[in-house]
Amino acid sequence: MNIFRLAGDMTHLMSVLVLLLKIHTIKSCAGISLKTQELYALVFAARYLDIFTHYYSLYNTVMKLIFLGSSFSILWYMKRHKVVRRSYDKDQDTFRHHFLVLPCLVLALLINEKFTFKEVMWTFSIYLEAVAILPQLVLLQRTRNVDNLTGQYVFLLGAYRGLYIINWIYRYFAEPTYSTHWITWISGLLQTLLYADFFYYYINSVKNNVRLQLPA
């Protein structure tokens, strides 16, 4: 464990807490893509299959439970909670996210480190996470002004994998036994690049203290 990895996990944790805070306190999920939340729940379900079979550290297990619990409770809020679900704008959240799942699954079957069920599912989760933010980014383009909490949520979610990239670079040079993980590295890089223009507009809006507005 290095500081970059810890910073990445804490940033990721902050993103789900910001989202839960938004939904739980103001009882609204306006501007949040349910499709992205569904994809993330699938990512965690596929990635953490080994949560009870392969104990790595207490930290890892606790964090996996937090990410699984938070992503499924966000789904519950957005689909079942009588007040929150009314603020979900399904007419705007139209990205056909099913078209992301199958290609990622096929790619995981073709390109993986080991052709076992758990490894293919883990690889599937890596590919899917790289594109899971797309419905949310499309929704942000549509909803003209983005509220602060939603902007912070997307920013933190994008930043966490960026910190993981620094963690991989650090481990590559610092840990002689650290082997190459091209699948994780390339997917993580693509994932972070998807946020590039969002980061640009978000940082500008924070710097100039103006509402975040993505160009149409």
Binding site: R5, D9, D50, Y56, K64, T116, E119
Partner: peptide, 10 residues
Amino acid sequence: AEEEADHDEL
């Protein structure tokens, strides 16, 4: 069996 590729990250 060959050691499962242990994914030690989240």
